[in-house]
Amino acid sequence: MTNDEGRTLDSGALKALAHPLRVRIYDLLSERGPQTASSLAALIGETSGATSYHLRALAAHDLIREVTGRGTARERWWERPKGRINLPGPDEQQSPSNRAAAQIVTSEFFRLRHQTLMDYMNRSTADEPEEWRDSGLVMTTMLDLTAPQMTELAGELSAVVDAAIERYRGQENAAGTRRVTLRAEIFDLPAARTRRTNPEE
């Protein structure tokens, strides 16, 4: 998962991830860095036995790995390897079981994504340091584009994100930093597709 294109999950990894609790664990390792079964259990309200079981299932497909040189035989630390992953969406060419796994994973990832956004929108800034209060950006706009134009714009957005990743790489423990979520979305709307196919309406 170190190359620029990222790792596209195969059917085995996808099925291993296709459990809401495993998606949550994977998401927490991305958000908070290395954790133990006990610390994850405290964060999500499960037993350490349950989180330990799910951690091993994720590790079996290289979705996560043990942190070398940290922890003990009784308390192991786990991390998500750096790099992006690509989730194959539900596709009619997939087997029914793979399609179901893809639906579970994508639905849970986006449910958690939406929840973090709503938590951000609803939290009080009274106790936040002043420099963080207005540092975020939530923006939605509508454009009328052709398919090639949308593809070009998606590439430009990806390039901006990739440049930011390179610029700020290695700052995990730098003073004054916080983990930040950066989101970029661009897709055509169903109503817009209808409008194109019925231009006289």
Rank of each mutant, 00 (worst) to 15 (best):
1 M>Y: 07
3 N>H: 09
3 N>T: 09
4 D>L: 11
5 E>S: 12
6 G>Y: 03
7 R>P: 00
7 R>W: 11
10 D>Y: 00
12 G>K: 07
13 A>P: 08
17 L>M: 14
20 P>D: 05
24 R>E: 14
26 Y>F: 15
31 E>V: 07
31 E>D: 12
32 R>C: 05
36 T>Y: 05
37 A>P: 05
39 S>Q: 12
40 L>W: 06
43 L>K: 14
50 A>Y: 07
56 R>W: 04
57 A>Q: 14
58 L>T: 03
64 I>F: 05
65 R>Y: 02
66 E>L: 12
67 V>D: 07
70 R>Q: 15
71 G>V: 09
75 E>N: 15
75 E>L: 14
78 W>Y: 15
80 R>G: 05
87 L>F: 15
93 Q>A: 15
94 Q>T: 05
100 A>W: 02
101 A>E: 02
102 A>R: 07
102 A>Y: 06
105 V>A: 04
107 S>I: 01
110 F>E: 03
111 R>E: 13
111 R>S: 12
114 H>L: 15
115 Q>I: 01
116 T>N: 07
117 L>T: 10
119 D>K: 11
122 N>M: 13
122 N>P: 01
126 A>P: 00
129 P>Q: 11
130 E>K: 11
130 E>A: 15
130 E>M: 08
133 R>S: 07
135 S>H: 12
138 V>E: 10
139 M>K: 09
139 M>P: 00
139 M>S: 10
144 D>K: 04
144 D>Q: 13
145 L>A: 02
145 L>R: 01
145 L>Y: 00
148 P>C: 08
149 Q>C: 01
153 L>F: 11
154 A>W: 01
156 E>D: 08
158 S>G: 08
165 I>N: 01
165 I>M: 08
169 R>P: 00
169 R>A: 15
172 E>W: 02
173 N>F: 09
176 G>N: 07
179 R>M: 11
179 R>I: 08
179 R>G: 11
182 L>N: 04
182 L>W: 10
188 D>C: 06
188 D>E: 13
190 P>C: 04
191 A>R: 12
194 T>Y: 10
197 T>V: 10
199 P>L: 07
